[in-house]
Each structure stands twice: as structure tokens, then as C-alpha cells.
Amino acid sequence: MTVRVLVVDDSAFFRRRVTEILEQNSRLEVIGSANDGREAVDKAKSLRPDVITMDIEMPVMNGIDAVKEIMRSAPCPILMFSSLTHEGATATLNALEAGAADFLPKKFEDIARNRDEAVKTLQDRVLAIANDTGARSTRAATPPPSPASRSSTPLTRSPATRGSSGSALDRIRQRSEQRQRQRDEATAPASVASTSSLTINRAYQILAIGTSTGGPVALQKILTQLPADFPYPIVMVQHMPAAFTKAFSQRLDGLCKVRVKEAEDGDVLRPGQAYLAPGGKQMIVDGTSSNARLRIKEDNSGRVTYKPSVDITFASLSKLFGGKVLGVILTGMGADGREGSRMLKQKGATIWAQDEASCVVYGMPQAVASAGISSRSISLNEMGKAIIKEVGYH
């Protein structure tokens, strides 16, 4: 099935460039374009694309407001294009909170080492969010009404196609509603452990979380539920550019009871403190289990795809903490974290995965689940509660 894409940007040159890149892949079809947020909302309703690529800064209506309106009126996976600045990071995080599925730097040279790799990255990202959010349906077999008839004629399907197409549309709407509830609940005060007592579970010494696409909202959802006296340090690896991780950690720190910071070389791991791996580098843990420190290292080897990499961080945890790790793999494309989780599992650690229904992209969690590494698949809505109970709150 072909994935139908709407390209939104106020630059005609950028719209053409994105269109040319996407249509090099036979599985992708650009069905329209828009040069501002208001036009994007209108075309999202009329064309019903499978995926939208969206700029942030645009006239008439900006990308963030357009995302909010589209997710209310015509839910659809949205890929944001962002500048790699602090302001761009903040705006992109706002767009993800509003319902966007993922983002890429607007300068393609910032996402890959060469043009061919950049082209593939964009194509793969669009296909991933289309497939995993259930956007594809039999709409391709039943084109939308012509412009002349849209205002007066409802979109209809034959009995042979109504069931499968309807279920796909229901799925994207349900996921949109679920994510809106998750975003609303993520900013609410945590109350899970407010009246509970703590008996520390000595089976653990650290909580480790790895994630990618969809991770910012997922991490916010979980961390805002944790109490200030959370008994372990928390290390987090989120696939993100260097310009984004500091802004993201600051946002989380303002929302959470636990303290959150972008990890720095030499940081001593302390209970109730969450450390976010800085973008573009690798984060490992060394020292001793009772006096563990973070090491932040440059990685110019080209051997590792992800910087930061969940595998590298989790592997270092297996050497230092052995089985006393609670590892959690959240939403994300690819399989980063599978081998690191395998090493932890071999030492006796506990590995959980986010369940498919609540993932933006069920790639990383599926990798650990299908390999038999994770012991539980948990909904994002339940993950924070499950962690709190596991560490010793009753």
C-alpha cells in the first residue's frame, strides 16, 4: 500500500525538495502541499493523508497550532521539521506535546553523513510513523471525493472495503485520543505514591530507560508520576540531537518531583535524580555500584548508529550493577537497546517493554519482546505505577 503524504512548509523550495525526496520511494506518494498552518488544517480534513510533514514557523497559523487543530479534527501522524537551536528544540517539544509523532532537523545535512543517507532517513521515518500509527488504510483504493463534490458529498466506501478502512481510521482516532489523555495526565500532579509507604526493593540499585520516536511524551508521562524520594538514580537514553537534550531535561525538571538534568561527565549517580544522555555523545556508567559515575564520551567511530545509544549505556550498567537494574524500553523505531538489554538479562536484571498499543512506533519494545528478553509488556498509562510498585511503594 502507498503512504499518502501532505507536505507543509512556507518555503516553496523546501516543499519541492521534500516532495522530490519522498517520491523517490515507490511506497510514498505526495498528494498535496500547503504553505501555512491554516491551509494544512484544511487539506488534512479534505485529503485525509496518511502522514503530514510540518514546518514550525509559518504565517497565518504556526506549525504547533496546526498540529493541535489537526489532532482534534483529522488525526494523522505528523513529522515536524525543526531547527537545531534551543528555541527550535523548545518549539519542537511543544509540537510533540501537541500530538506530533516525531521530528527531524530541517537541515538534512544535520541528520546524516551524506545525501543518500539523509534521503533514506527521511523516507524511513515517514514510513515508520505511517505504519506504526495505523495510518495506512484502504483509502488508496477509494480516493477522496473530487474538490467539486467534497462540500456536499460524504466520503463513502463499498461494503467490501468499509470494514478494513473503518478499523484503520478508528485506530488512528483512538490513538490520538489516547495520546491526548496521556499529554493531559503527564502535566497533572503525581498522586500515585502520595499516601503510600516506601520499603525499598533491594533487588534494584538503578532504573534505566531507553527510547526514541515518541519518547519525549512517554518519558514525561512516566517521570511526572515518580515521587521526589524515588530510591534509585535514573539514567535515560533518548535519541535526540545535541541541541535538544538540554532543553528537554530542563522541561522535565520543571514538571517532575524527581530532579532531572542533562548528564555531564563525572556526575555521581544519586537517588531521586534522573540523568538524560546528551545528544551526539555516548553515556556510560563506571566506578563501583556504591559510587557510580557517568562518563560522557565523544563517538566519531561511525560504528554506532545512535548517539546516544541505549545499547552502550545498558551494556555499561550490566558490568557495574549486574542484575540489580530495572530496565525499561519505550517507544521507538529500530532495535537499539536489544543487545544491551540482553546483557542485562544475562546478569539477572529485569527488563520491561512498552506495549504495542501505546507506542508511537513499536520497534525498540518489539525487539526486546520478540527476543524473549522482556518479562512484561506494559501500557504507557500503567508504566509509572508499575515502576513505583516494583521499587517498593505499597
Rank of each mutant, 00 (worst) to 15 (best):
P271A: 14
R293M: 09
L255V: 08
D265I: 03
V268D: 08
P241S: 12
K257G: 08
D299Y: 02
C256G: 08
A292R: 03
V260Q: 05
G280V: 04
I296M: 08
F248K: 07
T245R: 00
K246R: 14
V258K: 01
S301W: 11
D265V: 04
R295N: 12
A274E: 06
A263C: 06
R303L: 14
V304Q: 05
I296T: 10
Q282F: 00
M240T: 04
A243N: 14
A274G: 14
L294D: 11
G279C: 01
G287M: 10
Q282P: 02
S249T: 05
P308R: 02
F244I: 10
C256P: 05
G280R: 01
K297Y: 01
I284M: 12
V268R: 15
G279N: 03
K257D: 15
R303W: 02
Y306C: 14
V268I: 15
G302H: 05
L276C: 10
R270F: 05
A247H: 01
T288R: 08
S309E: 13
K297P: 00
V258T: 13
A242H: 06
R259W: 02
A292Y: 04
K261P: 06
R270I: 14
D267R: 02
A277K: 00
L252E: 07
L294P: 05
K281D: 09
R293D: 03
A243R: 00
L269Q: 11
G279T: 01
G287I: 05
L294R: 09
V258A: 06
K297E: 15
T305I: 15
G280N: 10
F244D: 10
D253K: 01
L276M: 15
K261H: 10
E264D: 12
R251F: 06
L252I: 11
P241F: 02
F248P: 13
V285I: 13
E264S: 15
T305R: 13
S289W: 06
A263W: 00
L252M: 11
I296A: 08
G266P: 01
S309T: 07
A247W: 00
S301P: 02
G272K: 02
G302L: 08
P271Q: 11
A292S: 15
R295Q: 12
S290K: 14
A263G: 13
F244C: 07
S290Q: 15
D286S: 14
K307H: 13
A274M: 12
G280E: 07
Q282H: 08
G272Q: 05
R295F: 07
Q273L: 13
D299W: 00
S290G: 07
Q273K: 12
L255T: 04
A292I: 03
R293A: 10
D267F: 04
A292G: 11
P308A: 08
L294T: 07
P271T: 07
V268Y: 10
A263K: 00
F244V: 10
A263Q: 03
N300Y: 09
F244H: 07
V310N: 05
P308H: 07
Q250W: 01
I284E: 14
V260E: 10
K281A: 09
D253I: 01
E262N: 13
M240Y: 03
E264Q: 14
